[in-house]
Simulated scan of single mutants.
Amino acid sequence: MDSSRGPSLYPLHRCKTLHIVGVEFMVDNLRKHVRSCGLIKKVDLVITSPLFRTMQTAVGVFGGEGYTDRMDAVPLMVANAGNSGRPAISSLDCPPIVAVELCREHLIESDEDVLWKANIRETKEELEARGTTFMNWLWMRKEKEIAIVTHSGFLFHALSAFGNDCHPLVKKEICKRFANCELRSMVIVDKSMSGSDASTTNYPGKIPPGPDLPSDVVGENNMKKDVPNSVFS
């Protein structure tokens, strides 16, 4: 059978679920969505680009509720951060949020940036390579459901390296540009068996000794064990 024409099976522990957000604005609407669909309770980790608007979106969408000085925790974001006019956001009851250079935008604007090169803009090939490095880094992490908040330009080039073994329409679905604050959930699969943890849900079972007898024969044999031999002699 040609497996490319039908569904494929992969062990669950060799997969990770990614919830990818292309950033601009409309944070409030997306925040309501991730709560109404239950996604906020599933995400183990949030990865964001280190640029301000992506961090602001990551905290606004996946952060805790409003912060007050009486809370026994520091705020994830202070009030009016970046002249946003938004209230402080609590760090309570939300997944960890980590800023990562690998998933930042391709246009580098400051010589203080780690990836900055004087008078040189990162090429398409370099951007795709960085995207592949980022996906490999994600795969090696222990978390199984990860939210990624980054720039649509980075995502367009980074995801273009994937889906070549899929139907063209699936490839298009993976690689198309993200709309304003769009969220897509995808699965990455370990086909090489690199960095995969043991399953937490599989059960090895046990095959009973002897031949695989029909159920009526098994029932008769069990009955003989429970009755004195003289009854069947």
Rank of each mutant, 00 (worst) to 15 (best):
A88D: 03
P11I: 04
I148Q: 00
M55T: 07
A88L: 06
V114F: 14
A99M: 07
D212F: 09
K225C: 08
G205C: 01
S196C: 06
K142T: 06
R177T: 15
R53S: 06
M223E: 15
A179P: 05
S196D: 04
I40T: 11
N29R: 14
E112M: 12
E112H: 13
D28G: 06
P11N: 07
V100T: 06
I108H: 10
K32C: 13
G85C: 01
D226S: 14
V74F: 13
G60T: 00
K191R: 12
S3L: 14
G85R: 00
C15G: 05
N80A: 06
S196I: 01
M1N: 13
S91L: 07
H33W: 15
N180F: 08
L127S: 12
I40Y: 11
G163W: 01
I146S: 01
L45K: 04
F156Y: 13
I97G: 00
L92D: 03
P11A: 10
I89P: 00
C166R: 03
F162W: 12
P168F: 03
E65Y: 11
R130Y: 04
K16Y: 05
D190I: 02
R31K: 08
V170C: 10
K172D: 09
V27T: 09
K142G: 02
A179D: 15
R14L: 06
S233V: 07
V21Q: 00
V100H: 07
S110L: 08
G195R: 03
H167A: 09
M135K: 03
R184D: 01
Y67T: 05
K142W: 01
L169H: 10
M140R: 15
V46M: 02
M186G: 00
L18I: 03
D113Q: 10
H13P: 01
K172S: 09
G82E: 06
W116I: 05
C103W: 02
P50E: 04
M186A: 06
I89N: 00
G195E: 03
R70I: 08
S84V: 04
T17E: 12
N119G: 06
H157M: 13
G60V: 00
D93F: 11
K172R: 10
E173D: 11
P204G: 05
G153T: 09
G82P: 02
P211K: 11
R31T: 02
V23A: 13
L159S: 04
D212M: 09
S8I: 14
